[in-house]
Design a protein around this nucleic acid. Structure first.
Lengths: 218, 218
DNA sequence: CCAATAGTGTCTCTGAGACATTATCCC
DNA sequence: GGGATAATGTCTCAGAGACACTATTGG
């Protein structure tokens, strides 16, 4: 029985200029050497505790990033997706604030542009974006794109970019309040022009490693 | 590099006696020969088009079932989950009306009982049940457990078993109406005692292979 | 006619959005 | 003070649940 090629690929997503971007790396080896692709590679049986661990390793080694959020997306398989033979890729997606990304290492591309990617990486990317947008509707997932501290108007903008539509300010604040996962940083305000500064918030410690779900969507 | 053991496992779920059950098979080979486990096996590189195809093959060959619904759940990996070595299992879950299951072939166990299962099959089962219950809140997924035709009271009961709580009859019917995916079978009623018989419905053709999602949960 | 369940009409209350008002900054 | 955005109060309308009532069967 031919061995199956087992790899892990990571869709690293961030927000830049009010748009959702994916981090791509030029491939160091064949196949598709030099082509921009999702960070990925072989599983290391000797050192990886599981595929999640392998995904963390790839982000650390190839992009220098320890993501605040990393979740398994799905696996992609078949004889044709990799020219080397029958393969399985366990795909993950990671969310990071853009401040964590050094653009020396990676290339950021708009997820909605008509990207050409090798293998079935376009399908993987599309699945990741769909998952993120879907979960954004009823969870605190977008907070991982917003950085450690943020104002409510900034967070609302993050949600709006992900959902692709403007949100009602009063309702948005009611929902954030209902989720009860943010804490105001006493006395810390953020000014951005000739107007009232906004209160700065952060995730409560209990929610920094865990999603908060909403009953009825955002 | 040691090859990675690649398998597919399927969580086959059905309703019986108003309870959610999982289909188990006695394992034919080592490891855990003779122990009840999730249907599963090696991927066949020569004949399987992908892991979904492999899952279908296992249900067909081992349980004689062609499921109306089969979805990838997640993959499970690591050095310890299989005594043979570092392994990956791509897990799927399938929904079938209990009428399709011949109990000669399989064993049905209550998913909420404290089952002992080999490998990490208990984790896989738990993940499948959680996914099913979660999706039941806002989709037509439970219809695949109800059989080809059913009455609204029957379908409501299916939803109630999955959600673990009684539902409001008026709201439930409003939602089913709003989803617009059922069609009454003209003149066909189902009587079940000394009372008014219920209208029999089926899924509209367009929804037999595709889920219908709700904006605001059921 | 009675018991039992199917199916529907309608009231109420919660909650989301729209709108308006106040607060607080820089110029 | 004026302009801009932050933050909050409040009105309205839609939708979900509660309740009640009608419909239709077997006994």
């Amino acid at each position: 029985m031919d061995p199956i090629i087992c790899t892990v690929d990571v869709v690293l997503l961030t927000l830049q200029d009010d748009a959702l971007k994916v981090a791509l790396l030029k491939r160091e080896r064949e196949p598709y050497q030099g082509v921009a692709a999702l960070p990925g590679g072989y599983i290391h049986v000797e050192s990886d505790a599981d595929t999640h661990d392998a995904a963390m390793r790839m982000l650390r080694d190839k992009a220098g990033i320890v993501p605040p959020y990393l979740e398994q997306l799905a696996s992609f398989s078949g004889p044709a997706r990799d020219p080397r033979g029958w393969s399985i890729s366990i795909a993950y997606y990671a969310l990071v604030p853009s401040a964590l990304i050094s653009q020396q290492h990676v290339l950021l591309a708009d997820v909605d542009s008509t990207l050409q990617l090798p293998f079935d990486h376009k399908s993987i990317l599309d699945a990741a974006v769909q998952r993120l947008r879907s979960k954004s509707q009823y969870s605190s997932l977008p907070c991982y794109l917003a950085g450690e501290t943020f104002t409510l108007p900034q967070l609302q903008k993050v949600y709006e970019v992900l959902m692709g539509e403007p949100l009602n300010k009063v309702s948005f604040r009611r929902k954030m309040d209902e989720m009860d996962m943010l804490e105001a940083i006493e006395g810390k305000m953020m000014a951005s022009g000739a107007h009232r500064p906004a209160q700065v918030y952060r995730l409560k410690a209990a929610y920094r490693k865990r999603l908060q779900l909403l009953e009825r969507g955002l």
